[in-house]
């Protein structure tokens, strides 16, 4: 067992891990941050995306020991300080960018990374950036709209009432 220490969502945390303990397992099982999901074992679905030192990574494809000393942000760290939804989260709700919710944490984390790199992406750039995030429910239509809306760009509203 190895002792690891890192900052997760602004809080210093420590834990005892095996070499083989994945960052996703450490977050889910040791820290009980179960918002980070594991949807595949080939590093493709992206449900586990978190930020490590500000960069989007797949928490299922990184050992916990590799995050020693790192600053980690998960979906649980994305709401505003008062607990209200952050801009991207709110756009996902407003534009119905989620259905079953399983891929959603990874989608939000990838969207946040995209908008940091590229504050006003085109539709094509959003779609390209989501190459590593698979959603089976939404057909991506409303995810793409939500991300464009979160970037401050004008997109058509959801279905007229």
């Amino acid at each position: 067992m190895t002792r690891v220490a890192m900052t997760v969502n602004g809080k210093a945390v420590t834990g005892e891990v095996e070499g083989r303990t994945l960052l996703s397992s450490f977050l889910r099982e040791d820290l009980h941050l179960t918002g980070t999901h594991v949807g595949c074992d080939t590093s493709q679905c992206g449900a586990c995306v978190v930020h490590v030192n500000g960069q989007a990574v797949k928490a299922c494809t990184m050992f916990a020991a590799e995050a020693e000393g790192a600053d980690v942000t998960t979906i649980e760290g994305m709401a505003n300080a008062d607990g209200s939804l952050g801009t991207i989260q709110q756009a996902f709700q407003d534009f119905h960018g989620l259905q079953c919710g399983f891929c959603t944490p990874g989608m939000v984390m990838s969207a946040a990374a995209l908008l940091k790199e590229n504050p006003t992406p085109t539709e094509a750039e959003v779609r390209a950036y989501l190459e590593g995030n698979i959603c089976r429910c939404t057909g991506y239509h409303n995810i793409v709209k939500a991300i464009l809306a979160a970037s401050g760009q004008s997109v058509p509203a959801v279905a007229a009432e």
């Binding site: 941050l33 179960t34 918002g35 980070t36 998960t74 979906i75 649980e76 994305m78 709401a79 939804l85 989260q89 996902f92 709700q93 407003d94 119905h96 989620l98 919710g101 399983f102 959603t104 944490p105 939000v108 959801v158 279905a159 007229a160 009432e161």
Partner: peptide, 16 residues
């Protein structure tokens, strides 16, 4: 009505 989904609040904050 296109009511916003109430379940989204937990799914979007990792509390599902």
């Amino acid at each position: 009505a296109s009511s916003k989904r109430r379940e989204d609040l937990r799914f979007l904050t990792g509390r599902g």
